[in-house]
């Protein structure tokens, strides 16, 4: 039994596969060229790598074995780091939530407010927390306080965006029904929007808690307290075995935080 195959279709299919293969090849070449250009610009090359390896090895050698005797001195800074992350995540909720309702197009009083608030949220989010910390340390002095403020500013931006995206994805039907029933704007938001967006908000807040724990370990680099400060001091004084102890502690704590966060997330969903 033979079945007539429309040869036009078949040729078109094969031609299309050929074209798409050529497209992939072009994309690959563009990426490759960009990588080459960047490798050249950043002097990232094999000789440099070969040259660097012995130095990295030598540093590694000087770091081992880790000096665990300072562990009890690190407890204070580590706790401070965790405290900074906790405050840096929870305080922004109170700012991000109202801002998100002003920024979301379906709950904003008018489009202009939405645009302006979004701009602010965008700026807060775009500037990395370390830069905020640096600016704030210059303004209010060294210590964990500017660290917390830096985390707060960055997190307002980050959470604000997550929150308003969640609000915008709520079903307009529910809000309409409540408006039809004569609910005020506040009541529409509280009963129509909040129950829907709460799980998303909780999970994005957890995400930022994880993120801030990681971030707060480095804020010390610019003098904003925590374990990062202990690490920087150890590094500046060439006390490398202590540096490794700091690193091990940081990795351990962050892994534990990851686990806690995953556990809490499982509870939410």
């Amino acid at each position: 039994m033979t079945i007539a195959v429309a040869s036009g279709v078949l040729d078109a299919v094969i031609e299309e596969r050929r074209v798409s293969r050529r497209q992939y090849a072009i994309i690959g070449m563009v990426v490759f060229a960009a990588a080459l250009w960047s490798a050249w610009g950043t002097e990232f090359n094999v000789p440099k790598l070969m040259e660097g390896l012995p130095h990295i090895y030598a540093l590694g050698e000087r770091m081992l074995p880790p000096d665990f005797s300072i562990l009890k001195d690190l407890a204070g800074p580590m706790i401070e780091t965790l405290e900074m992350a906790l405050l840096g995540t929870t305080i922004p909720i109170f700012f991000a939530l109202p801002l998100a309702f002003l920024a979301a197009v379906n709950t904003a009083p008018n489009p202009l407010v939405s645009i302006i608030v979004r701009l602010f949220i965008g700026i807060f989010r775009t500037v990395p927390e370390l830069i905020w910390a640096m600016v704030l340390v210059t303004a209010v002095g060294l210590g964990p306080f500017p660290g917390v403020l830096a985390l707060v500013l960055h997190t307002i931006g980050g959470l604000g965006k997550f929150y308003y995206e969640a609000i915008e994805s709520t079903d307009p039907g529910v809000m309409e029904a409540m408006q039809a029933a004569g609910a005020s704007r506040f009541k529409v938001i509280w009963y129509g929007v909040m129950p829907n967006v709460l799980p998303v908000m909780m999970s994005s807040t957890l995400f930022y808690w994880e993120y801030n724990n990681r971030a707060s370990t480095v804020l010390g680099l610019v003098g904003a307290g925590g374990i990062g400060l202990a690490l920087t001091h150890a590094l500046q004084d060439f006390r490398y075995p202590e540096v490794v102890t700091c690193l091990i502690l940081i990795v351990l704590i962050l892994v534990i935080i990851d686990r806690i966060s995953a556990f809490l997330r499982g509870k939410i969903i």
Binding site: T42, K48, I56, L59, R214, V218, L221, L235, I250
Partner: peptide
């Protein structure tokens, strides 16, 4: 991924010197 990239960078600056590398 346990240590953030800034801390890695700090270590490598000590090892291989300043610069983008």
């Amino acid at each position: 991924r346990g240590v953030s990239e800034i801390i890695w960078a700090l270590l490598f600056v000590v090892a291989v010197g300043l610069g983008p590398f």
